[in-house]
Design a protein around this nucleic acid. Sequence first.
DNA 1: CATAACGGTATCCTTTTTGACACTATGTGC
DNA 2: GCACATAGTGTCAAAAAGGATACCGTTATG
Lengths: 122, 122
Amino acid sequence: MTRRRTHGFDCAPGCSVEAALSLIDGKWKGVILFHLLERPMRFNEIRRKLATVTQRMLTTQLREMEADGLITRTVFAQVPPRVDYALSDLGRTLEPALHALKTWGDSNMHLFSPAPDTLNAS
Amino acid sequence: MTRRRTHGFDCAPGCSVEAALSLIDGKWKGVILFHLLERPMRFNEIRRKLATVTQRMLTTQLREMEADGLITRTVFAQVPPRVDYALSDLGRTLEPALHALKTWGDSNMHLFSPAPDTLNAS
DNA sequence: CATAACGGTATCCTTTTTGACACTATGTGC
DNA sequence: GCACATAGTGTCAAAAAGGATACCGTTATG
């Protein structure tokens, strides 16, 4: 996004929509949260789910969400290191919104993607 | 946003969340959509609601949403010009998601704002 | 004549975000 | 000794997003 650290919304009635968006905006946050909705995960586990994310980006996004209180980060003193990421209580309250977005996406994504199933030649 | 014109999601299960976010991401889109949910509006009418948006940004955001099929743009051949913006049918289907976001924001925004009411020094 | 309202464009510039790539530390298996 | 897995960090560069400012044409109004 784009407005993430720029707090200070202009606070017309839609302001709270912006506030919510400002937290889940970021190229990977939506997906990450969605995966964590299912269960806590380790760093590389998330990474494999995302496939094209770089380490640095994943770290950044996770750190921001941790700073925003949406997720928790638990380090286990082991070797090799183990770090678990999980939704916080606050993060869990996003569930309805995330589901609403996913529902919408599932219904309408075909309008924006190349519709690969229509390309089945032969 | 940030991922807006970068189509091609990595399409793990959370992909549709990203798809949805990619459309309402943009510094003003959330608020604009929210206002249009109430009723169609003219350009300057929206502008006044947003107060701090520049003409260029408003134009950009409206044009992108029009291109994405979320809103419609109707020009009336009048002088002075009149242009109405309204939600399209597709845009209207975002209502549940927008409301979910607003609800979340209303409940939790106090956690992220400077809490101005605690600053009341005489 | 000057000004304001309308709905924009065109240019230029700055900030933010994202990506590439190399590098770290520790311990295990070969 | 060498590579691999873990979970990162640091630096630099590119791309995208956003903002400031000035300008356009028309008509009504003072």
